[in-house]
Amino acid sequence: MTERTIAIVTGASRGAGRGIAIALGSHGCTVYVTGRSERQGDHALPGTIYETAEAVTRAGGKGIAVRCDHGDDTQVEALFDQVLANEGRIDILVNNAAAVYDELSMPGQFWEKPRKLADMIDVGIRSSYVASWLAAPGMAAKDHGLIVFTSASGAAHYAMGPAYGAHKAGIDKMAFDMAVDFKAAGTRVAALSIWMGALATDRLLAMIAADPEKYGYLRGQIETPEFTGHVIWALYNDPELAALNGETVIGAEMAVRYGLTDEGGRQPPSYRDTHKVAPHRHHPLIIR
């Protein structure tokens, strides 16, 4: 019997994380689903880690819910200890957890919005670093693994203010720099960042319903939350993955590369076409 691929998807109670976890489950993965929501009412939006884990199992995988606040290093360490004790390895880490607040899309300048928006730098950039730091030694020792950061085009243009932009730009650069270290260590572990499109999450659908004049155009560009998970699975199984190590890729373009479509056979558009933006190209200079 083929061993299940072992994946951790952080921030998977709802939204992109939930969709990615379910998609990986449909490919037979064991998916550790992390987040803080254990019961309805823990968050303004619906969704819990247990519901996601059950959906992963229904999809054909094995979903395991682990309550974890990614702003607490002790809880994150316990998560990785649990996975390694149970499974002996981690094949895929999806860094998706982020402190996202409704006030991000409020009108006004950054100093007119709540200071808590800076939390995205802690639970977003720092939390992704810590999770990757914990996953990397085992991956490097086994010469196998994929670390993914879920990003978006706000890394390269203004979107909802500097906290959001710093988060997206920061994780794109983190993927690049981690790849430099993996290559220097002579391991085949890969790190990359994926620009997801506008996702049909409860949060975005509510925003569209509340202000269709402002956000209605997104209906024609929207991706299902599962779409990125299928792209990640294709990347993980790509024998040429090393060529993409350290890159920031656009999920819609990777789908074309791998012959993937979204729900209903749709081919989501690329930011390169809709927004006329593309990921930054990093210089090859290395200073140690």
Rank of each mutant, 00 (worst) to 15 (best):
D172R: 00
Y258N: 00
D238K: 08
T52K: 11
A185M: 10
A85W: 03
Y50V: 07
W133I: 04
V148Q: 08
T274S: 03
V31P: 09
G88F: 11
K183Q: 14
P114L: 01
W133E: 05
V148R: 02
A242T: 01
H70P: 12
D202F: 00
E112G: 13
G63R: 02
E240G: 06
H167T: 01
A206R: 15
S37C: 13
I121F: 12
A98R: 11
E3A: 14
V123L: 04
A166V: 01
M174F: 12
G145I: 09
A140S: 07
E263H: 08
S127K: 04
A12R: 14
G197D: 03
L192Q: 08
K142H: 08
A243Q: 12
H43G: 10
G15A: 05
N245I: 04
A159V: 01
E263P: 04
A98G: 07
R257A: 09
I171L: 10
L204Q: 00
A252Y: 06
H167P: 00
G259D: 14
A210H: 13
D72K: 09
E112K: 00
E253C: 03
E240D: 15
A99N: 07
F80W: 12
N237T: 05
G61R: 05
N86T: 13
M160Y: 14
I147R: 06
D143N: 15
C68N: 10
G17S: 09
A21W: 05
I250Y: 03
S132A: 15
Y236C: 11
G124E: 15
G165H: 07
A156C: 07
A169P: 06
Y236G: 12
G186C: 03
K183M: 12
Y271I: 06
A243P: 04
F149G: 08
P107C: 13
Q109Y: 02
A7L: 05
T224Q: 15
H283Y: 07
Q40A: 13
A255Y: 03
I8C: 05
Q75N: 01
R272I: 09
I250C: 10
P284F: 06
I22E: 00
A118Q: 09
G197F: 07
N237V: 01
S127V: 14
T228C: 10
H157W: 10
R36C: 14
A278M: 05
Y32D: 12
M106N: 14
A163H: 11
G265D: 12
A16F: 07
I92M: 08
D102Y: 00
A152R: 12
N86A: 14
S193N: 03
I8P: 02
Q82Y: 11
G265S: 12
P212I: 05
G165I: 09
M160R: 13
Q82L: 10
L241D: 09
I147E: 01
A65S: 07
V231A: 13
M139Y: 04
L205K: 14
A179M: 10
I194S: 02
L199E: 08
Y158L: 04
